[in-house]
Design a protein around this nucleic acid. Structure first.
Lengths: 206, 206
DNA sequence: GTCTATAGCGAGATAGAC
DNA sequence: GTCTATCTCGCTATAGAC
């Protein structure tokens, strides 16, 4: 039974993850977290000092989840641009489909407090400029070799991220506007894993 | 001097627009709005009953701003698919560059309360399904005529919206990650007005 | 219409019993 | 470790003077 034990601490973190990610810091009440965890609100303060402490733990975890896989693909060597795009698209859509509120959470919290991005980015050893540069250089080489149409690396990068991330960020709007249910939406995202890569490659190949 | 008069009521609405759009309902304090307007907090309650009342007024205005132009383009007849795409892209990027926090505001508030989309959509006489259908039919015809590669209308629509809206939604992240200043960012968005249309058209044309 | 003062309440945090 | 009771504070909203 020891393996099956879920400690109160874990229950709190699990619940805080759900609630913070769905509602954001400002709209979350500690009472919501306690209810979600099925525990008394006081226990939050016993295990973690205060709301902000719990939030910081959650944010770090989710921040890592959001960025880490992408940065690994950035760093990967000896991969063609097209394959890199395919990997990025597949990874982003797969990850965000599993965690539909994650992108909106990271974006809104960073918008409210841009310092978070610098702080946790540094903490995780990310150096955005270097990594972005590696992608931009790869694109520049392909443009120079005339294997793809002229495009700035940073514009292409924005296009890739947009096509993967936006549908999940805007999911609540899309569900209503397109009148689809959760199941159909999942199928559409599944379909995008293939189609978006090809869409991008068709857009840039000569 | 009468024309130059700005009433207290207008000042409050102007301030509320800024603060709500930047911070969202939950993170906004009425004190923030009062400070931004340069007035006493009590006056908010004199002119408008409470925080929620002000928010509703602001949300309706901003909701209209976000959706209206797009729906007019949807409805426009006798325009080729490619031209419709060009118009949508130009309109969305122009509008969102002017109001950089608007998309994030609409998305997060709707995510917290999906009923808003139905309520205000109906109020403004939008019927998303019909309008989306008109676009999907147009795409289906072009696919059928073999003038463009096979693609579902709703996937194409998502791609268009993604490429226009995401960079503005994620602006706070992009500024840091790409190490660009406000001015450079504006230039990048200006550049996108042309490039995104061509990117999409290249992706789907035969 | 605009201000000061204050009521009222919701939410975070703590004390202390068990 | 977990609970009940309570303190405190910040924020919304209102009363009432001017």
């Amino acid at each position: 039974m020891i393996l099956a034990e879920i400690t109160t601490e874990e229950r709190i973190l699990e619940a805080a993850m759900k609630v913070f990610t769905r509602r954001g810091f400002a709209a979350t009440r500690t009472e919501d977290i306690a209810k979600e965890a099925g525990i008394n609100r006081t226990l939050l303060h016993y295990y973690f000092r205060d709301k902000q402490t719990i939030f910081n733990l959650i944010f770090e975890t989710r921040f890592k989840e959001f960025f880490k896989g992408l940065f690994l693909i950035f760093e990967a060597d000896n991969i063609s641009l097209f394959d890199k795009i395919r990997r990025m698209v597949d990874h982003e859509i797969t990850m965000l489909t599993k965690h539909p509120d994650l992108a909106r959470f990271i974006i809104t919290e960073v918008a409210h407090n841009p310092q978070l991005l610098i702080e946790y980015g540094t903490k995780l050893g990310m150096n955005p400029r270097v990594l972005k540069q590696s992608f931009e250089d790869l694109v520049a080489r392909e443009v120079n070799d005339k294997t793809i149409k002229p495009i700035e690396g940073r514009q292409l990068l924005m296009n890739i991220m947009s096509l993967c991330i936006y549908p999940l960020v805007a999911k609540p709007i899309i569900l209503t506007m397109m009148n689809v249910d959760e199941r159909t939406f999942s199928q559409m995202m599944e379909q995008r894993k293939e189609e978006v890569s090809e869409f991008i490659i068709n857009a840039i190949k000569k």
